[in-house]
């Protein structure tokens, strides 16, 4: 018997999932700031030693990208949409297409040796995508972190404060930004964003 309990936490498609913002309604507005929730993605926290070769090779073979060792970066698999993000020297966030988290976890566990952990956290966080000319302004109103393009190029990912909550900010491409927020704070973040985005005539799709 494995020393770690792993199980598929996703039911079949007959079970209706509810995102953390299920109770909130969409806001219709302009195109200067468009926020869209991407719920139900697979989120795994991977922890281990950065010098563990099996860790690196496992991530490469299972997720198809190099394990990012450079602080504050993440790597996107353009084909699958999966990504691996550096969170700390021994911690990474894997965001996977919906429903793949169990398989990925199993595959990683088979290939990684030594001291590591993998934890499914998909129920506990959700992802917002932001685009439009006013994203910089919205983020600047909300975060103490410098989101100017000189400091925040594509491929950067930073965990920081977001208003009075916390968030991970990611920049997958020139046009888009991503916010990973915690489930229990999601309603607060929604209210904050809609309030702070009011002057930009925001659109928020949940």
């Amino acid at each position: 018997m494995s020393k770690v309990a792993v199980f598929n936490q996703c039911p079949g498609s007959e079970v209706m999932a509810e995102s953390p913002l299920a109770h909130q309604s969409s806001v219709k507005g302009g195109r200067a700031l468009i926020v869209t929730e991407h719920a139900f993605l697979g989120h795994l926290i991977l922890r281990g030693q950065a010098d563990n070769e099996s860790l690196k090779s496992a991530v490469l073979s299972v997720v198809g990208v190099e394990l990012p060792l450079q602080p504050l970066t993440f790597v996107l698999n353009e084909t699958t949409g999966a990504s691996v993000q550096w969170l700390s020297p021994d911690e990474w966030l894997l965001i996977l297409p919906a429903g793949q988290e169990y398989e990925v976890e199993q595959n990683l566990r088979q290939q990684i040796s030594g001291h590591f952990s993998i934890v499914n956290v998909g129920g506990g966080q959700t992802l917002l995508r932001l685009k439009g000319d006013k994203v910089f302004d919205l983020l600047s109103k909300s975060c103490v972190y410098d989101v100017h393009e000189r400091n925040f190029p594509v491929g950067k990912a930073v965990a920081t404060t977001f208003a009075k909550a916390t968030a991970i900010i990611r920049r997958p491409n020139e046009q888009e930004w991503e916010l990973v927020i915690r489930r229990s704070f999601a309603d607060y973040c929604y209210r904050w964003i809609t309030d702070a985005g009011r002057e930009f005539d925001l659109t928020f799709t949940v």
Binding site: P71, L72, V144, Y145, T160, T161
Partner: peptide
Amino acid sequence: PYCGEHREEAEF
């Protein structure tokens, strides 16, 4: 020293 950059006090 882990993130390798200056950050605001609010994060600490």
